[in-house]
């Protein structure tokens, strides 16, 4: 492989790469949103949200998860394959362990 070829390919790659990445300012903005969401989460401990509490916490958790994975882990800018890996693993875990816990519950109700 010639050096010039390497350089050219590399330049293209870096361009494609760097062009999509958020700037530090955007990262800080995302972190600020995350901080606000966390504050909201913690507030459920101090204020009574009634029956909305648990669904609210789950929604906030999912939003934070997607934000960190999408922006900080670059899933939004990278190849879809990486995201597929991650969500396959996550999906497998959720389905298998939910089923396992359900078996315990179903059994207990007899």
């Amino acid at each position: 492989m010639s050096t010039s070829g390497t350089q050219a390919a590399d330049a293209v790659e870096h361009e494609a790469h760097g062009g999509h990445h958020p700037t530090p300012t955007e990262y800080v903005r995302i972190a600020l949103i995350l901080a606000v969401l966390t504050a909201l989460e913690v507030s459920t401990y101090y204020f009574d949200f009634g029956r909305a509490g648990i669904p609210l916490l789950i929604i906030l958790m999912v939003i934070k998860f997607i934000m960190v994975a999408g922006s900080f882990m670059h899933l939004r800018y990278d190849t879809k394959l990486f995201g597929r890996f991650m969500y396959t693993g996550l999906g497998f875990a959720i389905v298998l362990y939910t089923a396992t816990l359900l078996i315990f519950v179903v059994d207990a109700n007899q």
Binding site: E41, V42, I54, L57, K64, F65, V68, F72, M73
Partner: peptide, 20 residues
């Protein structure tokens, strides 16, 4: 970041939801 998002889940599931 992965370790961080695991904690995002754990903090909610282990600490906050049970308290509610």
């Amino acid at each position: 970041h992965f370790v961080d998002i695991i904690w995002v889940i754990l903090f909610t599931v282990v600490y906050l939801i049970p308290e509610l």
